[in-house]
Structures are given as structure tokens and as C-alpha cells.
Design a binder for these strands. Structure first.
Length: 252
DNA sequence: ACACTTCTATTGAATTCGCG
DNA sequence: CGCGAATTCAATAGAAGTGT
């Protein structure tokens, strides 16, 4: 029953699809199987391009995302065995009458009621997702980990930081009066938090010249060259090859 | 009149409580 | 901890309600 990190972090659309697109590869969130972009995968008589092959992989190994997810236990799905079985029948497009016969129930009203209860459950699930999503923005005490910049490079699980930790670090490295960076941290984890904070000084989607970038960084730290380089290296900023234009990598 | 949705009552199973 | 009592939960079936 091990469900990987990506599974929980990817958005609903990716989850429904069953795989996420990374820089250089496609990753199956159901099993962690990866497929490298740009390669061609032979399958029987056919040669499949990477993404096609990933779709094929899901059908072959997991039948469908639906089948895979519904096979998880109650703890994960929140569904009882009969409820899961019901969903399977519904997925197959069976009528109440057919389901009744197949599961040997005495009456179609039982199936009807299952449909009703499950629909209610769906509404509750939507409600819960929305509620918790809204809560996330407000609850600064939750020990939730900050998800690193999605485009950030040089980041792995070790650098997960709770909001509390991150708050502490920021207090340590930034002067409360002037908001200037006192000194640049040596530890990777701290660097990440500090850089993330600095990245917020830039307006998303806006294009900056190198000079403008320097100006902004200079306001909080003298050694703007180092900081600028770090922002790029850690994937917070991106730039044209010739350095004529800089912008914040999108966060969403 | 008909199909379809929602509510209610009953039952048995599972879980929790509380007492020694 | 063990065991029966009490409570809660899930499944069922039929009744009531709703809309066309």
C-alpha cells in the first residue's frame, strides 16, 4: 500500500491521468515507473513515443487509473468493500437490475440506495477538499511541509521545511528593521528558504533586465552577483541564454 | 403514469466503553 | 487485560417524494 510522494503532490488532473510530466521524463504516479522523453519504446509490432508508452504502461500494468485506485483499502479510499464493489459496477456501466443479479441482492432498491449514499459521499469529499485547501493558506501552525518551488532544481525531500521552521530561519537571516539579508546561509536547507523568500521580491511573469535584477537584490544584500547566481542555480529565476532578460519561474 | 431520487426503519456486525 | 453491555456503523428493502 505504498503510495509515493508524487501521488500526493501532483494535481487532480495528473492523478486522473496517472502520470506526471517532468523535465526529462514521464513518471507513473501509481507505481513510480519512469519513461524517458525523447526515447522510442518498442512494444510488440509498434514503436511508441515516450508519452504514448506511458499511457500504454498504465493500461498494461494497472488496467486503468480507476481500477488501480479502487483497489486501495478503506483507509485510503474511505470506501467500504461493498462501496468499492458498487463503484466498480457503476464504472462498468451496469444497471441496478444487473448489479442486483450479479451480487445476489434481493432488491434493486438496495443498489439505488448505494448510489444515493455514494453521491452524498462525493459531495462531502468535495467539501472536505475545498475546506482543507482553504485552511492550508491560513493555518500557520500546521506542521505541513512547504512544497518547494515546483520548478526548483537541486531540491529533494531532505529540504522539506515546515512553515514554523522557515519562519524562524527567516527571522534569523533577515534584519527585522531593514529587511536586509544579514548574511547568506551556508547550509543547503537554509539557502533554499532564504532564496524562496528573495524570489518573492520579483513579480511573476514580469521580464527584468540584468540591471533591474541587480537593483532589486542590492536593496537587501550587497553581493548581488552571488545571490543572482544562486537564484538561477536553484531554479527560482530563469533567464535568456544571453542574459538580456530575467523572470521568475512560475510557482503554480 | 413513469422513472428516478431521497428518506426511514430494521437488522446484524463492528467498535468502543466500563467495570472488575 | 478480558468480557459483556452499550453505542455506532453499514447494508438492506421498502416507502415516500419529485419531476416530466
Amino acid at each position: 500500500m505504498d503510495v509515493n510522494e508524487e501521488f500526493w503532490n501532483c494535481d487532480l488532473e495528473d492523478l486522473k491521468r496517472g502520470y506526471v510530466e517532468k523535465q526529462e521524463l514521464y513518471l507513473c504516479v501509481l507505481c513510480g515507473h519512469t519513461v524517458e522523453k525523447g526515447l522510442i519504446y518498442p512494444e510488440q509490432e509498434l514503436l511508441l513515443e515516450a508519452e504514448k508508452y506511458m499511457k500504454y504502461h498504465i493500461t498494461k500494468e494497472h488496467t486503468s487509473v480507476f481500477h488501480h485506485l479502487i483497489s486501495y483499502n478503506k483507509k485510503l479510499t474511505g470506501l467500504t468493500d461493498t462501496q468499492s464493489q458498487m463503484l466498480r459496477y457503476f464504472y462498468e456501466g451496469k444497471s441496478d437490475e444487473e448489479i442486483k443479479t450479479e451480487m445476489g441482492a434481493g432488491s434493486t432498491s438496495t443498489i439505488r440506495n448505494h448510489r444515493f449514499v455514494l453521491k452524498e459521499k462525493e459531495r462531502q469529499a468535495r467539501m472536505a477538499v475545498t475546506l482543507f485547501d482553504l485552511l492550508k493558506e491560513k493555518d500557520h501552525h500546521a506542521p505541513s511541509v512547504l512544497v518547494p518551488h515546483q520548478t526548483a532544481t537541486m531540491v529533494d525531500e531532505r529540504y522539506n521545511v515546515t512553515k514554523e521552521e522557515s519562519h524562524k530561519m527567516l527571522k534569523k537571516y533577515f534584519d527585522e528593521e531593514t529587511n536586509k539579508l544579514k548574511y547568506f546561509p551556508a547550509k543547503e536547507k537554509q539557502k533554499l528558504v532564504v532564496l524562496r523568500e528573495i524570489a518573492t521580491l520579483f513579480t511573476p511573469k514580469q521580464q527584468y533586465s540584468e540591471k533591474e535584477v541587480n537593483e532589486i537584490i542590492k536593496r537587501i544584500y550587497d553581493d548581488f552577483v552571488t545571490l543572482r547566481r544562486y537564484l538561477i542555480a536553484y531554479g527560482f529565476l530563469d533567464r535568456k541564454k544571453d542574459g538580456s532578460s530575467y523572470w521568475v519561474k512560475s510557482t503554480s
